[in-house]
Design a protein around this nucleic acid. Structure first.
Length: 420
RNA sequence: GUGGGUGUAGCUCAGCAGGCUAGAGCACCAGAUUGUGGCUCUGGGGGUCGUGGGUUCAAGUCCCAUCAUCCACCCCA
């Protein structure tokens, strides 16, 4: 073999690809029901989009981007996430000039140079939605409810919706100061990482999984403690709307999402059955992002779900998806003289909308029958020399074994009727 | 970037404390009085034992390196 697939990438083979098609089908349906239109953006963008959009102190930008110079010496990056490109399109294609809000969804591959592990890949796929133009807390609730609705339709169980509000920039300044005041006397108890975070982004200390940091963080001011009246009111309304939908959730004041652009609502959906990478999706409000990208002040909210993780979870929970249906008909030849008639019959069947195939391996009649059975054919049409002379062929019902001679010219019609 | 586990046929794995032409099950292909499948039986093809060094009379088996993969940390989907 010349080479293998690059690390952290996957081939999705027949037998698995049906799961993806099923998931994509459910996504399309729910998006249409919730009023989202699909947008397809390029897989690569100018690097600065992510530097500015995602935030240049985030892990994604600092160590996970696939960045390279193209032949024109432009810095190009394979998209590590979907929101920034959609925001770019919203601006570039002037979607703000149309009726608001603009509700968009996307699916597709994303790229992050991480070390692969269970549920994590260098090329992975996300489904995401974005809503531009509305401040309404009901929209926050709607997108969360939509994500949970999708999971419910897929049959997933034991999920946890965690919700928090990270406030607006004004709240963050307050929080930052109060956190630094709180942790300053406890700096020695923090892990090395968190001592860095103390200056760079003290909010992240709350998110640390180290025991010592969790202990040191007990009683620390949280994002919710520092919300201004406006942000607190918004958060109350979000929760009220979630309650209206009877959606269960956990308020997690430690939930701080990794991307810089979040304001107000932040949420994450956790699953317990898929290993350490337990988040199957997350999102939040990003009221400053459009402006950061050079557009008019425009509120936005969205989420992204990890499709590999969803499929992994479905497998772990034993959820069955429809497989590829077998062929309708397999055309079997017996004798050299029958091959041209069989070939023409095959195409006649297909023109009539039946899925049909024949042997191309020069196999014996017996082997052809075996293959037909394995391929899940519902009918076999056996074109034999003797029968052909009499102008008929044998049509065999593979499930019952019943077989009858049918006038050759009438086989397509005969089978079409059988299918119904 | 850090740490640990694993790498033998297409797949799941055996291969004992280094020693004869490297095995099994499944899958694939072909047969079982020559024109009929899903069961059974028989046979067959297919392996640079991840790769490169080293130790040894002798290495799939020991040592080193490297690559890949899995899992975990970090972080995230």
């Amino acid at each position: 073999m010349l080479t293998t697939r690059p690390r952290g990438t996957n081939d999705i083979l027949p037998g698995d690809v049906e799961k993806w098609q099923y998931l994509e089908g459910q996504i399309c349906r729910i998006c249409s029901e919730y009023g989202f239109s699909e947008i397809r953006t390029p897989i690569f963008e100018h690097t600065e989009l992510f530097l500015r959009g995602v935030g240049d102190t985030t892990d994604i930008v600092e160590k996970e981007m696939y960045t390279f110079n193209d032949r024109g010496e432009r810095s190009i990056t394979l998209r590590p996430e979907g929101t920034a490109p959609v925001v770019r399109a919203y601006l570039e294609d002037r979607l703000y000039a149309g009726p608001q809000p603009v509700k968009l969804f996307y699916t597709g591959p994303m790229f992050r140079y991480d070390r692969p592990q269970s549920g994590r890949f260098r090329q992975f796929h996300q489904f995401g939605v974005e809503v531009f133009g509305s401040h309404d807390p009901a929209v926050d609730a709607e997108v969360m409810a939509m994500a949970m609705d999708l999971f419910a339709r897929l049959g997933l169980r034991n999920l946890e919706l965690r919700v928090n509000s990270v406030g607006c920039p004004a709240c963050r300044i307050v929080l930052r100061r109060r956190l630094q005041d709180f942790f300053r006397p406890r700096l020695d108890n923090l892990c090395k990482n968190c001592r860095d975070r103390f200056e760079k982004n003290p909010m992240r200390i709350l998110d640390c999984k180290e025991k010592r940091c969790k202990e040191a963080g007990a009683g620390a001011p949280t994002t919710i403690d520092c919300l201004c009246d406006g942000c607190a009111g918004h958060f109350e309304q979000v929760k009220k709307h979630l309650d209206l939908l009877n959606l269960s959730y956990i308020v997690d004041s430690c939930l701080v999402r990794g991307l810089d652009y979040y304001t107000h609502t932040a949420f994450e959906i956790m699953a317990s059955d898929i290993g350490a990478q337990s988040s199957i999706g997350g999102g939040g409000r990003y009221n400053r992002l459009v402006e950061t990208c050079g557009g008019p002040p425009t509120p936005g909210i969205g989420y992204a779900l990890g499709m590999e993780r969803i499929i992994l979870l479905m497998e772990r929970q034993g959820i069955e998806t429809p497989g590829t249906p077998g062929k309708d008909v397999f055309v079997v030849t017996a004798g050299q003289a029958t091959s041209t008639e069989a070939f023409k019959l095959l195409f006649g069947l297909r023109s009539a909308g039946l899925s049909a195939d024949k042997d191309y391996m020069n196999r014996s009649l017996k082997a052809q029958m075996k293959y037909a059975a394995k391929a899940g054919a519902r009918f076999a049409v056996i074109v034999g020399e003797e029968e052909l002379k009499q102008g008929v062929a044998l049509v065999r019902d593979m499930s019952t074994g019943a077989q009858e001679a049918v006038v050759f010219g009438g086989i397509v019609e005969y089978l079409c009727l059988k299918q119904l």
